[in-house]
């Protein structure tokens, strides 16, 4: 990696961290993501799972859809734009997002910390570089990891310290509610 590249990556990862912070303030999982094309941010995203009640609304997917909107507005060829862009995200993309990024044709993903729960770039499974998936998902993508890893982890820790407001109640809680049903209107 050229030194110039690295300083670029650091600048963009800082922006991604700001987006993660914003997601945290909106009680979403604090992951921040941006897609950069020729030194221009063409799409950003934060997790929107709780707001949309759709568990696939990860930061990467939101950013991809912003890029698609921009391509439509500016009459750009989507394929060409994605294939010359870099995606920055604070946490390793999950196996779903890794599959999505391959299909969109992104060549490079730069991320902060590993994702031991869902990681699709090697932490749990390696969707990013599995050559057997090329026929169905398109080419593999490269990854650079570890930039602002600690900061990304800290944001996640902050989130999981509080409770995810949309996560299902524990069984114990449900039982109490059932038992008191007559008192509830």
């Amino acid at each position: 990696m050229h030194q110039e590249d690295e300083s670029h990556h650091i600048v963009w990862m800082k922006t991604a961290l700001c987006l993660a912070q914003k997601a945290l303030e909106q009680q979403e999982v604090p992951v921040g993501c941006l897609i950069v094309n020729k030194d221009r941010i063409i799409g950003t995203g934060g997790n929107e799972v709780n707001r949309t009640k759709n568990a696939t609304r990860h930061a990467e997917i939101i950013a991809i859809e912003e890029v698609r909107d921009l391509c439509r507005r500016e009459c750009l060829v989507e394929r060409d734009v994605f294939s010359t862009s870099i995606l920055y995200v604070t946490v390793e993309p999950c196996a779903m997002c890794a599959g999505a990024l391959r299909q969109m044709g992104l060549p490079l993903v730069v991320y902060g910390c590993d994702n031991d729960r869902f990681g699709g770039c090697g932490s749990v499974i390696d969707v990013a570089s599995n050559p057997a998936l090329t026929d169905s998902l398109g080419p593999c993508f490269d990854t650079i990891k570890g930039i602002f890893s600690n900061e990304a982890v800290d944001l996640l820790k902050n989130f999981y310290k509080g409770e995810n407001p949309n996560a299902p109640n524990s069984k114990r809680k449900l039982k109490v509610v059932e038992g008191q049903e007559s008192n509830h209107k």
Partner: peptide, 13 residues
């Protein structure tokens, strides 16, 4: 389902 969809189903429980 492909890996993207299968993982979407994990996330969706």
């Amino acid at each position: 389902p492909c890996v993207m969809c299968s993982m979407a189903l994990v996330h969706s429980r």
